[in-house]
Design a protein around this nucleic acid. Structure first.
Lengths: 244, 244
DNA sequence: CTGCCCCTTTGATCTGAATCAACGGGACTG
DNA sequence: CAGTCCCGTTGATTCAGATCAAAGGGGCAG
């Protein structure tokens, strides 16, 4: 699989508009041949968002879809009195903005500088209709996100504070590991408040959980918002809910 | 849309194997013409599950996919110490068993007598590959379920007990209303414990929330596990999190 | 009809995490 | 370089919901 993808990457002409895209093979673009990819790319444009800027707000009509190539966003909903829930963090390779509704149900805000491709929804849909291989990839991505969302449901419904934080950290480590198998340090571009709003906790409780994991020797907190994984197994036990 | 579907339903020959299926147009079967539908149906078989029986367990290899035609199931995960989270309730017209993993991450257990069609996953995938219109429906269903899952994430992460119960009830009422616009009574085939395990609460808290909603005159509890909607608006305010 | 079981409801008490409060530190600003 | 702001951490107190406990009711087997 990696080899095949490697070949396809190598096969892309030098002057191809997606030639420098680092996440091409992590998203459905990887399912397209060079020519189709160029056609696809021409449907949209690229842009950058600075920290705090939003690609769209809850309630906006969904006119564009996005493909993130660099940086992290948070996808959140606000309740009328200010309570906030971050449904998920969006990372390079993630697709964003697809909705069955006419209107976005969440706000997508950049946590750090974000580069992305954007496509008018109508054109995107037409292209997808004409390219079944895209449809298949889209379905696979939706299924994947659904699995992640249900994992989050288990976390929010039944796990304790420290189990939630352990699960969150492991998910981050595993995401890094998918690319660098022996990388044991992860950067967390989001604040404690963001993590809390993702895990259904408060920033104080998240902070205490980090401290507790550090004291138990499972992780180390490194300057510049980084965390090192010291002992994976007990962290996995905690995350799985084994009352450790 | 309803008219178009009505026509398509009427167009199905009398002796068609799906002729009596009441949910055909609620699921992707509705996107198939009579002949293709018959071919599709022939790929699998129908069966019934009694209350308490499981279509599959967490950890089983995912060899079959299911289409529920009657009855309700619960889809749940157990943590090692017995904590349980019901990811969702599955109803007629819902598709079940699709997973990106080789193995089911949840158990699907019947709450009441359940009729369903089942298909070997491999054959189903092949059929879907050959019929792009199915792929599109599958994607739409996955996107729909993802939206529902994220709604549940907001509920579990940030809503209070009574807001959760109000949201749950409204979702039930709306599901009924989609078919019978002025129907204000809904049957709840699941126990208080099931509802609690869906909403991240305990059965006692769920029961107290029902009592509170009844005392406020928003709902009435009717024998035979039924609930009547008396005042929709305040219930909607509660569900939206307006601190009523 | 009786007894058993399970479900629901209600009450009393407990507790994990929220809230309230304070402090230290890094980044930016004027 | 003082001032401000935001972030993270830690401590004290509070509270929503969990847990523990008990009683009532419907369904069903014998």
């Amino acid at each position: 699989m990696t080899d095949e993808r490697g070949l396809r990457l190598a096969a892309l002409p030098r002057d191809h508009p997606c030639g420098r895209c680092e996440v091409r093979l992590d998203t459905f673009c990887g399912a397209l041949k060079a020519k189709e990819l160029a056609e696809f790319k021409a449907l949209g444009s690229t842009a950058r968002a600075e920290p705090g800027q939003c690609l769209f707000h809850e309630g906006d009509t969904a006119e564009l879809v996005f493909n993130v190539t660099r940086g992290t966003l948070k996808l959140y909903r606000l309740l009328p009195d200010g309570r906030r829930q971050i449904a998920s963090f969006i990372q390079p390779g993630d697709f964003l903005g697809l909705t069955v509704e006419e209107v976005h149900a969440y706000t997508a805000e950049a946590l750090e500088p974000v580069d992305y491709c954007r496509f008018p929804r109508e054109r995107f849909d037409r292209f997808a209709d004409e390219h079944p291989e895209i449809g298949r990839e889209l379905y696979a991505m939706a299924a994947h996100e659904l699995a992640a969302a249900r994992e989050q449901i288990v976390l929010l419904g039944r796990k304790t504070a420290i189990e939630r934080v352990a699960s969150f950290l492991l998910a981050r480590f595993d995401r890094v590991r998918a690319r660098n198998p022996d990388w044991e340090i992860v950067r967390l571009p989001m604040t404690r408040t963001d993590i809390a709003d993702h895990l259904g906790l408060t920033k104080e409780t998240v902070s205490r959980a980090f401290t507790s994991l550090r004291r138990r020797g499972l992780i180390a907190l490194i300057p510049d918002a980084r965390v090192e994984l010291l002992r994976r197994e007990p962290l996995e036990h905690l995350a799985a809910g084994e009352r450790g």
